[in-house]
């Protein structure tokens, strides 16, 4: 079981309504731990957040998340593209990414896993079902699942050398 104090989830979602409903579902599920939720609205911002560049440079205000919830259909850079980028970022790839998409097309699902997604969930229409999904997700991914430490890319390089 995890010994962390603040658990962080990065939500990559362009639909403001979906963001609101997702936050409500986290509240309603009532499962511990209740995470700090950071939201970005497109794939490019997700990459910048995870890479810690630009407006996301300060890790105190924008900590590396313990989990990423990723929509697929996003402006500018799709969820698939974010996954493809992540697959080449050695320490960052350790952060589990759960795809949350409306699409149930087999090709989308297969491609997400091919690009390294850790799980794939279909956004339900019923809020009740969303609450159930988020409850299960909190329990499994934030409570029981063991994550590997993710050090910043630069420090990781130095540590390898010693």
């Amino acid at each position: 079981m995890k010994q962390r104090s603040a658990v962080t989830v990065l939500v990559v979602e362009d639909d403001a309504n979906d963001v609101l409903l997702l936050k409500r579902a986290f509240r309603k599920a009532g499962t511990e731990p209740f995470p700090v939720i950071h939201v970005v609205n497109d794939g490019e911002s997700a990459v910048r957040y995870l890479g810690g560049v630009g407006e996301f440079g300060d890790r105190r205000s924008h900590p590396l998340p313990d989990l990423v919830l990723l929509d697929l259909k996003l402006p500018r850079m799709s969820g698939h593209e974010v996954l493809a980028w992540r697959s080449e970022q050695l320490p960052l790839i350790r952060i589990p990414v759960i795809v949350m998409s409306s699409s149930q097309e087999a090709s989308d699902i297969a491609r997400a896993y091919d690009c390294g997604a850790n799980s794939y969930l279909v956004k339900p229409v019923e809020l009740e079902v969303l609450v159930e999904i988020i409850g299960a997700l909190q329990g499994y991914w934030l409570r029981f699942n063991e994550t590997a430490a993710v050090t910043e890319p630069r420090t990781f390089g130095t540590r390898l050398a010693t």
């Binding site: 639909d15 309504n17 979906d18 609101l20 409903l21 409500r24 409306s102 956004k123 339900p124 229409v125 019923e126 809020l127 969303l130």
Partner: peptide, 11 residues
């Protein structure tokens, strides 16, 4: 088509 439906149902 399903995104606005989630909004209707959810809210």
């Amino acid at each position: 088509l399903r995104a606005p439906l989630r909004t209707m149902e959810g809210f």
